[in-house]
Amino acid sequence: MSCTETIQNFAFRSIGYGERMLPRTDFTLCEHFTLIGSGMIWNIYYGLVAIIFGFFAATGLAMAKNSENKWLQKPAEFFIYVFRGSPLFIQFFFAYAVFLSLKQSVPVLQPLTASWLGATLVLFCNTSAYSAEIFYGALRSIPKGDLEAADAYGIMGWTRFKRITWPTMLRLAWPSYTNEAIFLFHATALVSFSSFPVWQQRGDALYYASYFADKTFNPFVPYPILAFYFILLTLVVITIFGAANKHLNRHLPQERRKKIRLQFNLFR
């Protein structure tokens, strides 16, 4: 089988198109690259959905944690504490068990036990909590002068939030938020190992990488390929978030602009 054929057969294997049978023997490098790349579709899907929805939820949570109303502040604080204080791995296991029992009493919730919805939901809650903590820190460090200036101009309420508070918060939080996004994509690799069943071998990148490693008993090929894909993904995330960072800082003089510094943070 030539490499083009392999790509045709397996490029979308992870979402159920193409050849049903995975290769069994005589694995070629092309098969490694195609299948692991195919699995990346899932990693990108989990990460993208969780980040997009999590962004808004995190803004809300951060505002709630910063609010003076106890009824808003305490629940937000608790939510953030629970999701930041426990391992993501355990959260996956626990959530799956909860979804399983929910399914039995309320049949409509059946899709929750599938990873496309259930795992995404857990990742969404998790990234919301981590990002909310970042946003909360940024909210607390908005320069007092900016808010006073807004008051002086008579900008209040929703307008003040939309035009002063929120953009400043994002600008201050953005470098840490970039790291959060990178590590969220890394966290998506946990999904197929965390009790959410992989249906018809439609797994994510790490699922296929460990499939190859198990079959060939040679970790030195599939895992570096996986690493290659994730480094590529990280570079894409950095590029996109870097462009956004530039946009958020466009009004500032050159030397005050905040550079994104990559740190290793966070394993959940």
Binding site: F185, A187, A189, A227, F230, T234, L235
Partner: peptide, 20 residues
Amino acid sequence: IVRGVPDIAFFLFFVIALDQ
């Protein structure tokens, strides 16, 4: 080395790699 790659991949990799 840990930048850019999920650490779970390292965990799965090193256990077999070190053993071998």
